[in-house]
Design a protein around this nucleic acid. Structure first.
Lengths: 134, 134
DNA sequence: ATAATGACTTGCAATATGCAAGCGACTCTC
DNA sequence: GAGAGTCGCTTGCATATTGCAAGTCATTAT
């Protein structure tokens, strides 16, 4: 059963610290990786599923829901005939790019073997994204 | 009787992406908060236990162990008579300040109600500061 | 009609987290 | 020198979150 208590009245944050609050939103095992992928141009459920880290399908569905609820991403039908959906970052979501950048820099500097290939691309519309770093 | 069971020395990272690798290290629910606290000058087990988020004792012990193993923090006896330990960040750990800063800024800008409270009571006057909030 | 695809759900494991106690080494009273 | 207190943990379970495999549903393609 779905035990989510995402009720509006549920305001029991761990604290008022902006770091803690931000982590409550995206501080799980997958959210930031999804945001990374979206910044790289991945847009559909299938594309997002495809990353090398191998996110489970149920988690992907759940995270997308949460990101949407948090206003970090939006889901839209981008095609009608076979109905297909695209997830894209809102400005708020895009702004997490700074967090990603900091994480990436730290990793490159401190984790031997980790290797970034490219910088996250700006929201380019039609282009199949480069696989930056995955 | 299971084939393909990896042992503890298994180094199968999720991917080679520096973001993913960094998150494997500190991307859990507590690590970054501990690093935040250490940057604020908290040093002992008891002090770290005291943050408003309320980390459980077993998790704290475990995270400190992990941070040490990862080379982000060190444990040292800072007193002998009643033997007492202090945890402090290594340079590597300190460098995560940029990640914290990015998280903090995002939170302040995007999460109404989150609020940094004061400047770090840092043991040294350093340049990058993660201003306080807890 | 059958197969395929995209976007998910559902049902359980397997892990990770959370809570309350307890434990050992001291030390500090009395 | 017998408690009582403090610090730094550990241990034993609950509960929650994740992970894996499979199944569903609406369409579409063959």
């Amino acid at each position: 059963m779905n035990a989510r208590k995402a009720d509006k009245t549920d305001k029991a944050w761990r604290s008022v610290c902006p770091i803690a609050r931000t982590l409550e939103l995206v501080g799980d095992k997958w959210s930031l990786l999804l945001i990374r992928d979206m910044r790289f141009g991945k847009r559909t459920y299938g594309e997002l599923l495809d990353s090398p880290e191998g996110i489970p399908t149920n988690i992907l569905a759940d995270r997308l829901k949460r990101l949407e609820e948090a206003g970090l991403a939006v889901r839209s039908e981008y095609q009608d005939r076979p109905v297909r959906y695209a997830y894209t970052l809102t400005e708020k979501g895009q702004d997490l790019g700074n967090v990603l950048l900091a994480l990436k820099r730290w990793g490159e500097a401190n984790i031997p073997g980790s290797r970034a290939l490219r910088q996250p691309a700006a929201p380019s519309r039609r282009k199949v994204s480069v696989s930056g770093t995955k």
